[in-house]
Design a protein around this nucleic acid. Structure first.
Lengths: 223, 223
DNA sequence: GCCGTCTCATGTACGTCGTACAGTTGTCGA
DNA sequence: TCGACAACTGTACGACGTACATGAGACGGC
């Protein structure tokens, strides 16, 4: 593995750690992100991490912050509020979508990062424009962000881990399990079968349910 | 602590373990649910757990199944599909709401339990009635369930753990952090402040966003 | 040139976790 | 009475997060 001890041995840095934690989580899942593992990948003692992070939890904070910082908010511009809301939520979605393994970390940490505050500010602003009172806007806004996180975390398609063979096997098993259900009790589940275990088209899945959310906001706004 | 070794010392059972795991998670959070801790509460060796569960993951499966089994689906009845959809989603929400600590476990395990299949069947059935094709129904249905989970997991109000004092302190800190933001950059965040860190009225929060979801389904159904 | 001081990393050690593997008990039908 | 099987014990291992004490390199001031 990429020990830094060969030749270059640059200084450890908080950002470098985060970056390798990100790719580790993407490649092997969040449970593979370990103080010891990260230290090893940087050719360094586990305890060296504690110079840059108070504890593991603040490392996870760092991961969440990484997510939020990746959000590319659209220019404030004009146009109907619902289209702009959709654009903002879409930006959030696109930022976390590449990292389903730890998107869930953002759930409780959005407001902890600068970038998250900006996102929240934009969402709340648009909701106010739509006519929501401050309290309602907060409630709806909170849920919208969490729903976006749930959207990417819920993509049933498994990530690159575990190994290819095991993953295929898992998918096959799940499919078989659904297919072998009693058809008179679960006709719709069986009909939906394949779509439930793997997303045939993530883009469509995300777009459809993003629409659902925005239309939902319009729905409750009217009364 | 409730050691079973006094007098009664009944046989260990899968259900009994699940039940104590549930109350442990409710009281101290999911990370307090530990093979060793559960064994101790039943006055038994950790390894005794492995007679009833393959491994910790299947214990968590059991927790998720517990959630799904708690769903009290309304009678199929008649009426507009959207009202019935709301009722079904509400039933799901009410089932998991008492257990925010491990509601997230249900995300990937809904279809693993009998009760989850029934819930999914009902949701898909209603979506088909609403005019969605099988594929779309699967995508929307999947997201709706996940969104409900996210709804209860996102209630920012912290649970009964950590200890009261620490919890109050945490809430105070968060509030102070939001209040001290530059008002010209984050007017809406500051205005929404209190509502963002703690839910003043969970019932309203849930009802509002449940409406959002149902209205959203109506919105994308029309075109 | 020498020397505190500050930054960053090491080394050792502890307690907790999940769990593999082998052995022991209690119960019960034949 | 006796095996067979179900339920549980005992010991041990490796991985985890991290407390605490120590050590090295850089750097500005004397």
């Amino acid at each position: 593995m990429a020990k830094r001890s060969d030749v270059t041995r640059t200084r450890l840095s908080r950002d470098a750690i985060i970056v390798s934690a990100v790719s580790l989580a993407d490649a092997e899942g969040l449970e593979a992100v370990t103080i010891r593992r990260l230290a090893q990948e940087h050719g360094v003692t586990p305890m060296a991490m504690y110079w840059h992070f108070n504890d593991k939890d603040s490392l996870l904070d760092g991961l969440a912050e990484y997510l939020m910082t990746a959000v590319r908010l659209p220019a404030p511009g004009d146009g109907p509020w619902d289209e702009r809301l959709r654009a903002v939520l879409h930006a959030f979605l696109e930022a976390i979508r590449p990292h389903p393994a730890f998107a869930g970390l953002a759930l409780r940490r959005i407001l902890a990062a600068e970038a998250g505050l900006q996102l929240a500010e934009r969402v709340l602003d648009l909701l106010r424009q739509a006519g929501f009172a401050a309290g309602k806007a907060a409630e709806v806004g909170t849920f919208l962000m969490c729903a976006i996180v749930a959207l990417v975390a819920s993509d049933p398609t498994p990530g690159p881990w575990p190994a290819d063979d095991d993953r295929d096997q898992l998918v096959r098993d799940k499919r078989a399990r659904l297919a072998s259900l009693p058809p008179e009790r679960y006709p719709n589940v069986i009909a939906a079968g394949p779509a439930l275990v793997v997303c045939r088209d993530s883009d469509e899945y995300f777009a459809l349910n993003l629409d659902l959310l925005v239309q939902g906001v319009r729905g409750i706004q009217r009364g």
